[in-house]
Design a protein around this nucleic acid. Sequence first.
DNA 1: CACGACATTGGACTATTGGGCGAATTTAAG
DNA 2: CTTAAATTCGCCCAATAGTCCAATGTCGTG
Lengths: 207, 207
Amino acid sequence: MKHIFVGHGGRLRPRWQEAFPDAQGLSSLFELTPAREGEKRMLWFDISNTSAQERMALVNQCIASGSPVIVMSSLPNDDEAYEMLRNGAYGYCHNVAAPSQLVEISQVVEHGGLWVGAAVMRRLVSMANRVSADKPKDSNIYGLNELTHKELDVAKQVAVGATNKEIAEQLHMSERTVKAHLSSVFDKMAVRDRVQLALTMNNVKLH
Amino acid sequence: MKHIFVGHGGRLRPRWQEAFPDAQGLSSLFELTPAREGEKRMLWFDISNTSAQERMALVNQCIASGSPVIVMSSLPNDDEAYEMLRNGAYGYCHNVAAPSQLVEISQVVEHGGLWVGAAVMRRLVSMANRVSADKPKDSNIYGLNELTHKELDVAKQVAVGATNKEIAEQLHMSERTVKAHLSSVFDKMAVRDRVQLALTMNNVKLH
DNA sequence: CACGACATTGGACTATTGGGCGAATTTAAG
DNA sequence: CTTAAATTCGCCCAATAGTCCAATGTCGTG
């Protein structure tokens, strides 16, 4: 695994060097050469000293390169972390993080995971709490538990955007039967159509 | 750091043993002796073969012991992950996770972090987006920023389950105009109907 | 075995959606 | 001022979605 640090004028901070002795530094993305066949790389992008506008564009370019990208900021901020992760970054940390932490991050990312600091992580969990706490526990999670087996099958398909015809083929039943199940599902889950059902199944609040 | 695995009849799975050669296995929490002075421990709690009711009680006991707890399930599930993390767990993973992953988790937790799988992590991030995305930032999801103002207005309404008629009233335009905008949105965002649009706007992957 | 819940399907409709064709009006940019 | 893009909307048509009522078969419980 080759570690490439982009930003900070192409210089490698001592901490980076210590974590990855054979790391490479680039001052900008333009210097990035295509990866050799079979070469695995990890991009560390230091976004300090970049304006908010160019930040996203640069990160998107980084991500478009195909290699996993970890964004480093001199002033980590929760909202920015979400933004980066949502747009495809694999990690978000301080640009002067300890070498041992950099190694830890690289390991998590190398195994396909996303890494964020404990504080951000805890906030994410509490947010998830807020979102999933909206569903009243006493009423069986929007009546999802009261669906029959077939109804649930059909509902799941709607939840990923399938049409009635597709569902009918997928589940080997007539389109008419799909409709019958769906009518029942709408009733049980107290929604009026497939759009609301799809959203509800994905924990999205309606208007 | 001493690793103690609770559950699975007190037996250590080969994977656990491989990750932590001097790990200890306990069949239940009652066998847990108080930690010696200055001894740092990590509890791995295998919740397979426990009923939903006793699960939370047991996990709470684990957590009350003071040592960081990582919950392991035979059938990991997003909602359960949130539940566990919210209640104080430091990690949530599969009970037959690879040894290298167990080591990775232990390192993250040892440094005060929380660990969850990539899938759960991504979902948490998308949820955070939903909660904190009230402010109209120049979000960059799929061709969202290429939509015109009106198109975005209409798309947002669809994203919370509104019908064309409702959107028309809300935005003071005719139903025909709503359709016109939507047709354009479908095209720009590369979706075929309002269901897929609603899901895409909420960061839900389609089938 | 009878009864009720569930699954399946059909016919007959109604409602909603998505879009083609055409066109007027505004707004933004050069 | 001139051109391009954005916004608006009517008429009409086809495809999808959704509902009501009814019939048949399956399966587990009492």
